[in-house]
Design a binder for these strands. Structure first.
Lengths: 148, 148
DNA sequence: CTTGAAGCTATAGTGGCTATAGGTTGTAGG
DNA sequence: CCTACAACCTATAGCCACTATAGCTTCAAG
């Protein structure tokens, strides 16, 4: 009796995808852009992954889930691969990304307020000429930079 | 004495760009995807815009600033062009977009919390093997779906 | 040995621009 | 009138991080 799938140490790409929650196509993409090293191949040229690949792909997925760019992940992986290096760069990447996320939140919140205001005034049912949504977009009173 | 630039009624693309805050290339792109109608041309084949174009482009810019997708803007413009139509669709687009923005904010906030936690634990200066950032990414304890 | 799922490569498409190359036109100064 | 140069033109490729498609080959169960 062969080992069950869940315990196998050398797995094809579909199993790697299942285990990590990363799609097959995305795994091949990560290989293509050099995030994930090229694995061994079967006699029939199919990819065969080991434990190290699972670990590395999980790392990548965590980082992507946290919104890190692929380029940042490349750097983070390099740091992770050389445990003796100082981690200042990792901290800078994380702090920088946190800043970006906070900026994005701030921008979205002001968008949210504006959209909520607009969508509340018009609940549909009226003619487009009297619609607050259309009016808000056509209106120039919010233009800060230009006097058209 | 010719009218000053600011008062001219028929303007080239650069002036339209200045007046609306939309880049020249982006204006041409909007024309290409059918948001902005093709303008008249000068004898030398250069675009000449009138007041209607300024209005329409301003509408587009407001909508993009609010984060509406180009496809949504296409619909909103169509509604705006036919003022007698009921505006339910416009309301649906705005409400839908508001929902998306709120979802995005929610997701970013949980990201922010996680990143802040990670970035606070490690302020740099230690070896990568002890870095909270690297560790958090390599760590499997947050994996919900898989037992790798 | 057959069948069907899973794998393979290469290529194009997504959204919303932005950039580049290589040419033409408009216009102000001399 | 001529020259210089900014502004304009088209067509095409690139950006990010995938996702989808077409047309194959391989693997594994029955």
């Amino acid at each position: 009796m062969r080992p069950t799938k869940a315990l196998e140490r050398v797995v094809p790409i579909g199993t790697l995808a299942e285990r990590t929650g990363v799609k097959v196509e995305t795994i091949r993409y990560y290989e293509q852009v050099g995030l994930l090293p090229e694995p061994e191949r079967s006699e029939g040229n199919q990819r065969r992954y080991g434990r190290a690949h699972v670990e590395r792909l999980a790392f990548i997925k965590h980082a992507r889930d946290l919104g890190f760019a692929v380029e940042s992940i490349r750097t983070l992986l390099r740091l992770s691969d050389t445990p003796g290096m100082p981690c200042d760069e990792a901290h800078a990447i994380a702090a920088g990304h946190l800043g970006e996320v906070r900026d994005k939140i701030a921008r979205l919140r002001s968008l949210e307020a504006e959209l909520a205001r607009i969508a509340t005034v018009c609940s549909g049912g009226v003619a487009a000429r009297d619609c607050a949504v259309i009016e808000a977009l056509a209106d120039h009173s919010h233009c800060e930079h230009h006097d058209h």
